[in-house]
Design a protein around this nucleic acid. Structure first.
Lengths: 189, 189
DNA sequence: TGATTTTAATGATCCAGATCAATGTTTTTC
DNA sequence: GAAAAACATTGATCTGGATCATTAAAATCA
């Protein structure tokens, strides 16, 4: 049950087995059906999730009800509404399983508690924050400097697995264009 | 010379005076004229800057040469191309003084060196990363979910000092719209 | 397995915001 | 403090991608 999580952590930071067991002891498992949500707009993010199997989609909701995907979390990645997890403010994005999924989660209290007593966890968190920052900033840059066709080509090149695994609708939503626009793009390239 | 920096740090993290002096000892000063650049596209970010006076603009450059501002750094803020600072990869955004400015800077090597020997600096960095992540993600959300008029109203409400201090051209560029579009927006509101 | 829902593709039309152009105004510079 | 450069405003036109509509193909479900 903790095998993937253990590999994920030890791939990123030096930690002895005893400490790793302490980390594991704070994680509980959660099984989701397809299309099940794991949070509610307006409440604070109280958990950090690790995907053992399946896929999560994290998306903003516009004033008119339209959705825009911020990210997908596939197997062996962490996911939470980090902005809310950090600040404690109400979250502004929904997380939903787009496939039947198996997750592990640690509560926010336990997560920050570990930071105070385990330096290795502090390093792990720093690594996580750095990676999350880099990912999001590259995405911001992509939106700010590329048009839809360029964003699609970039996605094909850098994350072909996403294009293969996800429906057109999901890919279009991730690129922040309509399904129709993506369909037309694909027929031209 | 280090007064503002000292206040900035002690406002965010518990640190004794001796350690603070060690931190100061790694910072050097730099004076910039208006429009002077402090980095070159394609090289790695080797310094973290602190603005004592003036203002920096950090912007991406599109394939056609057009510029899009990622952020402004006013007095008492840190600034660097964090994506490159973290990864060591070539940077993809330019930082330029838009007013005559007085900066302090610490090199990347010294910055990461401090992390290894001073736990308080680790906490400071964590705080910095969290803030940078939250800021950038909110910006991504704003672009993904709001049109130009809404982004302008949000800016007026949340950062009126920016609208007051910066030229229309700079504000428009920050909103990722043309100067003409901003001018028309303003006449309608 | 057949019925319903979801997805994909393509055409027609629309719109936010870009671009080009002209004119006046402010700022910079020497 | 005059000349040059940069900035702001307003009008005219253009365009990438949205939206609406239709039909066909896949998934999903009873």
């Amino acid at each position: 049950m903790y095998q993937q999580l253990g590999k994920y952590i030890t791939d990123r930071v030096a930690i002895d087995d005893e400490q790793l067991q302490v980390v594991f002891s704070h994680f509980k498992s959660l099984t989701l059906k397809k299309n099940e949500m794991i949070n509610i707009l307006g409440t604070p993010a109280r958990r950090m999730y690790f995907v053992n199997k399946g896929c999560l989609r994290v998306y903003f909701v516009k004033a008119n009800g339209a959705e825009v995907t911020r990210r997908f979390a596939f197997e062996n990645t962490f996911s939470t509404s980090l902005t809310s997890f950090i600040s404690g403010e109400p979250l502004t994005e929904i997380t939903k399983a787009i496939e039947a999924s198996e997750l592990l989660y640690i509560t926010r209290d336990d997560f920050y508690g570990l930071l105070d007593v385990m330096p290795a966890w502090g390093k792990f968190y720093r690594n996580y924050l750095e990676f999350a920052y880099v990912t999001n900033t590259k995405r911001l840059q992509s939106f700010a400097t590329h048009d839809a066709a360029e964003r699609y080509k970039q996605l094909l090149k850098e994350s072909p697995h996403m294009v293969l695994r996800l429906s057109n609708k999901m890919v279009a939503n991730y690129l922040n264009i309509s399904q129709e626009a993506l369909s037309r793009l694909k027929s031209k390239i």
